[in-house]
Design a protein around this nucleic acid. Structure first.
Lengths: 286, 286
DNA sequence: TCCATTCTCTGACCTTAGTCAGAGAATCGG
DNA sequence: CCGATTCTCTGACTAAGGTCAGAGAATGGA
């Protein structure tokens, strides 16, 4: 298995990856091309560009200067906070971005072109599998401040998800609020300590694109381990009967249904699971 | 479909590719690491290194100098042609290469580690599919000199393949020899003109690793188009009855069995296919 | 034997992609 | 209003990766 993964890494990432980069950076350096892409039609604040592309602020500044000189972007202050500056594409920039877009399409199409229709279907399906499974494999569980933009986007996705699935809709204001959180890009959950060796899990959620890959189970396990590490001897949680996958996840993870322990407006099921003491205090393996 | 391919290109090649590179180039620049890898345990001529890695000769020279100073390689003249120099790994170099090897394994293993056994199986299967289909899609059909190393390696693989499959073994000397060739890495075939609007295909072969992907059909089509472009109005070929896939390929490509037209020692079947005139003379689309 | 070619190396350059330490403007919290 | 913090920019620097034009040694072909 490892040999197959290595072969894949070598062939696909090196060959196709290099092809990809060279395609994109025909006229301009790759860094600039990526930046042009990331600014998008709407424009974007520099800080968000830095976060997305992982660039040094000095470096970003220089890259933008060079795009500005080429007449591709303009940079102006943000109205609400004038320390922040916003980059916007000019008409030339938009056109250039469209060229990059078309090149990406062309490259993708040229990969498919030599194949028969059934091979194309197989390739695209296999690509989707690889992408999903790799994404799942690369998920790291980490605690994040609820004010973090990643956490924020989780909240939004989570609430709109609930709103869609609950027969009655979902209004965050009617639900119990949550003080401490643990969230990351495609999934999140929060843990709340309630004294007397009891912890409560709230707001656990996995993005639609990452479902069916065991991410929920991993997240649940991490939250339990975290709770156990802080002395909790049991975890409780409540959920809505519309969330059937969640309910079966809880059951299969060793939770058993208990009588209501709170008055959460949207809950129809309450679960509890005893925790075994953590092995030592901080010997969990990565 | 194109959208899925683009997403794959972006996410998988960029993310995993970058991870891969960073893993490999922990202590030394990526270029040196790749070079160390490519020299291999046996040593290798500089010209072949340049060809493999696509490096400028000056650049390669400098990279090697740096590895030489680090005590990883020695460079000496080739015995048969003293203009050519051969790079060889020292004991230190071999050890370093083993470290790189282990890192590659570790990276691959770490991608699999977070997944459940069934997910691993699915991921590895999907990777194999992507790899094979992409390889097939990137095959270019091109004429190559038979002295070219790629062609040479095809000959060897081809002959040992036949030797394995023919009940009687295969001795190239007993088979008709071939003067003009058209071959490339995972597949090859040669075309021979016999006057009177007739062409003959010999030595058509597809590497085992590329079979089942339509490469043979594409190659056959290209050879026919080439023949038609040179005025041939039919193509003939002979084959051995052990090569069942080849025979069914020929049949499905419109060849019909004809009486023996030569005395090839290893042939039991002879085929012919009429060609339609090429559309214009050189308007074939790429 | 001699001339053209092949192969490697050296020196002089260049771009890309970064990093780091401030400086200066704007904002926030009290 | 003041001091701390946040955000961007500038200048100074670095490493990696690469290109180009010869020079010099070895070889091949006439």
């Amino acid at each position: 298995m490892v040999a197959q993964v290595r072969r894949f890494n070598r062939i696909v990432t090196q060959r196709v990856g290099a092809l990809n980069d060279r395609y994109l950076s025909r006229d301009r350096p790759l860094g600039e091309a990526r930046l042009l892409w990331e600014i998008g039609a709407e424009g974007r604040d520099l800080r968000s560009l830095r976060a997305r592309l992982g660039l040094d602020s000095g470096y970003l500044s220089r890259l933008l200067r060079s795009l500005e000189e080429a007449g591709m972007v303009t940079i102006g202050p943000n109205q609400s906070d004038r320390r922040i500056r916003t980059a916007r594409l000019t008409a030339t920039g938009v056109a250039e971005r469209a060229v990059l877009d078309r090149r990406s399409d062309d490259l993708a199409a040229s990969l498919l072109a030599p194949l028969s229709p059934s091979q194309r279907t197989r390739l695209v399906g296999a690509m989707a599998d690889v992408e999903r499974l790799m994404t799942a494999a690369m998920v790291e569980v980490a605690a994040v401040d609820p004010a973090d933009p990643r956490a924020q986007s989780c909240w939004h996705a989570y609430f709109s998800d609930l709103n869609r699935r609950f027969g009655t809709g979902f209004d965050p204001a009617r639900s119990a609020s949550v003080p401490e959180e643990e969230v990351r890009a495609p999934a999140g959950g929060s843990l709340r300590f309630r004294g007397a060796g009891r912890a409560e899990i709230k707001r656990m959620w996995v993005a639609e694109s990452a479902r069916g890959l065991g991410v929920g189970r991993r997240l649940l396990g991490e939250l339990e381990a975290h709770a156990a590490g802080h002395g909790a001897r049991s975890v409780r949680l409540d959920t809505n009967s519309a969330l059937t996958e969640a309910i079966s996840l809880y059951r299969s993870a060793g939770y058993s249904e208990v009588p209501p322990f709170n008055d959460e407006a949207y809950a129809q099921h309450w679960f509890e699971k005893p925790l075994s003491a953590p092995p030592g205090s901080r010997t969990a393996r990565s």
